[in-house]
Amino acid sequence: HAKESWTMTTTWPDNLALIEIDRHWVDLANKLVGDELKINFRAGGTLVPGTEVFDATQTGSIEASGDWPGYWAGRSPAFSPLATTTSLFNGVDYLNWIQQWGGFELYQEVYGKYNMVYLPYGITNNESGFMGRTPIKSLADLDGKRIRLSGRDQGRVLEELGGSQVTLAGGEIYQAIERGVIDAGEFSTPGVDYEAGFAEVAEYWTTPGWHQSASVFGVMINKDAWNALSKETQEKLKIAADATLAWSLSWSERGSTEGTIKFQEAGVQINQFSEADLARIQDITNEVIVRGACEDKMHAKVYHSMISYMEHYANWRDLTVPFNMSRTIDNLPSLKKIEACL
C-alpha cells in the first residue's frame, strides 16, 4: 500500500469546469506513481475556502492544492504574470515560455519563497471578454461603463480606456449583470461562462478577452511533502503535469468552441473590437506593464523573461506566417525600461 498519502484540494468548487484540469492531473499522477504516493483530492471549499488554499499549503495543513497563481498577487505582484497577461501572451506562448524559455524555473523561484514547489499543469487560451446587457461595440462604447474585472493591470488599462473597474464577489456577478448593477463583466472562458448561466442574463458579448489573453493553472506542493518523495516519484508527478498541460490546452479550446456555439444559439449578440481598438489597447497595456513591473523587483524579473522570450522567438516565428503558432507582435512593452528596474 501507499507510503505517502496527500490531501489535495483546489481553488475551484465542484461544478466549475476548471476543476477538471486538477482532476485530470490527480488521476494521471495516481496512475503513474504506483505505491509510493496516494493523492486524495477534494473539491474546492470542502476543506478550506478557495481563498485560503495558499496559506494552508504553505503551512503543510494540506500537502497540495490546485490554483490559479493570480489569486496570490497580494502577496507578491509577480504571481500575476505567472497566471495571465493583459494583451501579451497567448496559450502557446505560455507553453513555450514555461518549457523552453525559463518560465518553469521562475515559478519555482516565486513559489519557493513560500515553502512550495509549483507544477504548472493547465493552460487555457483567450478568455471570453465582456458580457452584459449594454452593447459594447468599440472602445468608444466603453467610456463611462462599469465593468466587473479582476486584476490590477487590467483595472489600470480599463481606467485609461475610460471604463471603471467594479469589484464583486464571484457569486454576485450573475445577478449584477441581470439587474444592471454593472454594464458588463468578465468571468472565464466561454465554456465555463455558459455553464455559469451567463447566457440567461447577458444580451451582448464583446471579444476578444484582451484583459486575460491566456491563463495558467497548476498545483502548489508543500516543499516538505515534496522532499519526502523519491526522485523517481517527483519525476512522475512532473510527467503527469506536462501531459495535463498539453491536454488542457485543447480541452479548453474545445470547450470554448462549444460554449461559443451555445451562446450564439441563445441569441447573445457578439461584437469584436476592431484592429485599431486592439492596437490602442496594446499601447496602453505596454505602458501599464512597465509601470507595474517597476513597482516590484520579482515582478520585473518575470516580465523581463517573458518579453525577452517574445523578442527571441520572433526571429523564427515571423518567418513562418501564416503557419506560426503564437502571436506575431512587435509592439511590446519596453524591455529596456523593465531592465532599468531590475
Partner: peptide, 14 residues
C-alpha cells in the same frame, strides 16, 4: 442558493 449553484450543474438564475 448561490452556494448551491456553484456546487451543482444548475445556474443561479434557475
Amino acid at each position: 442558493l448561490i452556494l448551491m449553484a456553484s456546487y451543482s450543474p444548475v445556474s443561479v438564475g434557475a
